[in-house]
Structures are given as structure tokens and as C-alpha cells.
Amino acid sequence: MSVESTASAFQVHASDNVATLLGEAAAGAPLEIVGPARASTLTACEKIELGHKVALTAIPEGAPVVKFGIVIGIATRAIAPGEWVHLHNCCSQLDERSGHFDLHTGEPGDNAYA
């Protein structure tokens, strides 16, 4: 058993336009989408890590990103199906610091240390 080798992603709610990776997906890897909606497959456009999100549909710039059946953020640019959805293309509707974090480490870039 290896979580890492499982190229599947979980869609929590039928209305979600993203799913969460249950393992790690390599770029170009087929992804099995599981959850309450009908099962489907998708191709990961890029490497996506465990716990991160993949777009299930095309999400236009300014459109809501939906997970758990709720709006978790707004697309800051057009997102294609199979793309990684994270800090580079999705922003909080509330958190002013959202958009200032390093895509890979989450490190804040909005505080001067000098």
C-alpha cells in the first residue's frame, strides 16, 4: 500500500469544481476522480501533491472555486481542467494577506525583516 502511488483525487461535494489529491500525481498522469459525483478520469496537467487540489472543470477568471460545496476562493486567472489549483490562481475573499504567500512553501512575502 502506498498513498504516494495512488493517482486518485476525492471530490467532496457534487457541486465542487476541484478535487483533493489522495496521493501524488505526476505531470500527464491519469487521475481517477472519486466521491459523491459520478466517477470520472482526468489528466493532471502538472505534478500535484497529496492534499492539494486539481481543477475538475474549466474555471474562468473571477469565478468561484468550490470545495465541500462552498466557495473557498476566487480564481485569479482562468484555470483549465487538470490544473493544480492553489495560491497562484485562487485567492481568499476575506484574507488580505492571501496572494502574498510563496506557492510552494507558503512563506509570507508581505512582511519586511529589515
Binding site: G51, H52, S92, L94
Partner: peptide, 23 residues
């Protein structure tokens, strides 16, 4: 002007406080 979401949450795949909240 601070929401309860931290760098480690982002690195772990959570993108916004809204997403973290539901979880």
C-alpha cells in the same frame, strides 16, 4: 487583519481560510 491560516497549511495544499474552515 489576520486569519487563522499559516504557511504550513498552504504548503499542505490548503489555499484559503475558507477552505481550511470547512475542514
Amino acid at each position: 487583519r489576520q486569519y487563522s491560516v499559516a504557511p504550513g497549511n498552504f504548503a499542505g495544499g490548503l489555499t484559503t481560510i475558507e477552505e481550511k474552515s470547512m475542514g
